[in-house]
Design a protein around this nucleic acid. Structure first.
Lengths: 358, 358
DNA sequence: GTCCGGATTGGCAGCGCTGCCAATTGTTGC
DNA sequence: GCAACAATTGGCAGCGCTGCCAATCCGGAC
């Protein structure tokens, strides 16, 4: 145990090791030629197409043949080459998934739902991250399309003209996720962010809060957060209220941004009685600010988030928020893509969690 | 705005829409044949190999030819088919990434580092999730290998014999991540979980805590957490202490598991003065329990986590924990795989954050 | 003007598999 | 026992691209 507590964080290259494991795998020193379906066919003394049929359980073959082929596969340690298989057949078993970020747990959730559903259908997912940048989205969409995926899952409904063109021209099925506020290209699975914002506003207004502020992150990039914001203001307006103040941090959403954002907003608008955050991470930051400064919640200040993360439910006072079916959205989109039905809009709705912070 | 606050969570199929966007993309009603490199060659009046060379900026060609080819590509909206390209050439530009979970932010962090580095090198990542199940790991490794990736990133050093065999037999480069406590197959990038556990124990013992408990999740599946646990006990032993009690929840780690785990442990061992959690999520849950029950931290109970998540830094009292370079590990592994050097072990170390909860 | 070497270009054989079709074998009805 | 039919099997073209090699072009040296 030569590690010390305060390790230098910088990478320290450790000693090179003489690993020979790999070389051992080479048989008799000859250059190892990868094992192909033809090798299996020869080993099993059947035709190539028979091996192919057995391995895909497609078409007909006798039980005896199956056994022979499977034995040969096991003996040789054959791994089918899906690159070749995909090229030869029509469709690939790949689905491309484009998400804006991996920092916000929302997108791993989406991925989780999608990959689980895809695996069931025998599909693999190729992922790409855009960092909320539409130009990067265009680039990664092109890059994913070059793998000739059976379908593409993208986030949101807003895309560059170039991205739209590529998506349409490619002819692959596209599912746009987590937003139903606007026209989609093909399959749309999500919920109305605008409605969620409005519902949050109505809830806060209904509970009697009157000096309501907004703490958000960079809305120019996160279009869905912008829609919630718009819906929220609309909802306030319907209740005869106006936003008492708002704070936008330039960074992506985070606990830190929420904590500092609320601090800044309270400094400018001290008589706030409720704060609406662009999401739960931000709200948790706000909650920590209140705890740290002894502001009773919701007595001094009510807090409201978005997403319904687990952490919110487990705070000493459960966070008032809106739960969004992210995992389900991923799974639903994946299933619809695999099923190959007509263009559809699936609104999964959302659930307002009253919690105890508002 | 026809959404209501308390949406039913169950999926509600929305009306099918007659989307014709896709059909518009079909030219002149004929069945659209995908555009191939041969089409581009014809359009540009050059040979296929010339187009290929231009598109890959490989080999030599005149400036005039490049312009002609690029114009033809733009005119036809050609997207190269990497499936075919990969089959024809030797190596693919795919890296398979196998992670145990997407629920714990640690793995998205790893993915983030890896995908960012891979994109720079012109690689794409195919991901698969094992749910901490070694049999599923074996299955997904096989599935990823069938895409003939240039390399594979897996988590941890412990694998089924079958997984090991496949990895070695495939001949692809493998990077094993987030653990350096044991022998690796090829490239290993991470840090010592055992040392991290020991460092945590020394820290708590050094601060004068004597009745130290452990709250963890399912260690039989999460081998790295098990190593931290072992290191922690070892560290306590070196300080002349023994574990005052422990609580293992059967579920995966989560804020909820931490909160309930601490509650249960305190019920059994009321005179605990410090709690070591299997990670920060769990520790945050413990912190929430303390807040909810008015236990002063660290006066009544000290808390110590693992991973160094942002949220810990922003708690009213910053969490005492160990920061692990997860993003860096992903990026380093990706770069090493692309670089194709010899087998290596890179120990990135870790950093103990003193925080204010211990 | 001719020759030489390098730059540029095109032709074409596969990469490993699947899909089609034809050949072969086994089965059932009468 | 034989035809008709179904089940099973093998052969082979070709998916779209790259890599190799040969053909062609170009500019300068002679």
């Amino acid at each position: 145990m030569d590690e010390e507590g305060n390790e230098a964080f910088a990478a320290r290259e450790a000693s090179m090791r003489d690993e020979t494991v790999q070389d051992e795998a080479f048989r008799d020193g000859a250059v190892r030629r990868p094992i192909t379906l033809a090798d299996v066919a020869r080993e099993a003394r059947v035709g190539e197409s028979t091996v192919s049929r057995v391995l895909r359980s497609h078409g007909s073959f006798s039980e005896k043949t199956r056994a022979r082929v499977e034995a040969a596969v096991a003996r040789l340690g054959y791994v089918p080459n899906r690159i070749a298989g995909t090229l030869a057949s029509t469709g690939s078993r790949l689905i491309g998934i484009v998400i804006p970020s991996l920092t916000n747990i929302v997108f791993p959730d989406l991925l989780r739902g999608a990959t689980a559903a895809l695996e069931q259908e025998g599909f693999q997912s190729v992922i790409a991250v855009t960092d909320y940048d539409q130009d990067r989205e265009e680039a990664v969409v092109g890059s994913l399309l070059s793998w000739r995926p059976a379908g593409l899952i993208v986030t949101g409904l807003e895309h560059n003209p170039g991205t739209q063109r590529r998506l349409v021209a490619s002819g692959v099925r596209v599912a746009e996720l987590l937003d139903t506020d606007g026209p989609g290209l093909d399959i749309v699975v999500g919920y109305s962010n605008r409605a969620a914002g409005a519902a949050s506003a109505r809830h806060l207004a209904g509970r009697g809060y009157r000096r309501i502020g907004y703490i958000g992150h960079d809305l120019s990039k996160d279009r869905r957060a912008a829609k919630r914001y718009a819906g929220f203001r609309e909802g306030l307006g319907q209740a005869g209220l106006a936003l008492a103040g708002e704070e936008r941090v330039a960074s992506p959403s985070s606990v830190e941004a929420g904590r500092h954002g609320l601090e800044a907003l309270l400094a400018r608008v001290p008589d706030l009685d409720a704060a609406y955050f662009s999401n739960d991470d931000m709200a948790l930051g706000g909650y920590f600010h209140c705890l740290a400064h002894g502001h009773p919640v919701p007595g001094r200040l009510a807090l409201f988030g978005y997403n319904g993360l687990d952490v919110g439910r487990l705070m000493p006072q459960p966070l008032a928020t809106i739960r969004t079916p992210r995992v389900e959205a991923g799974a639903t989109a994946a299933r619809l893509l695999c099923a190959g039905g007509p263009a559809t809009v699936v609104d999964l709705g959302f659930e307002l969690i009253e919690g105890a912070t508002a």
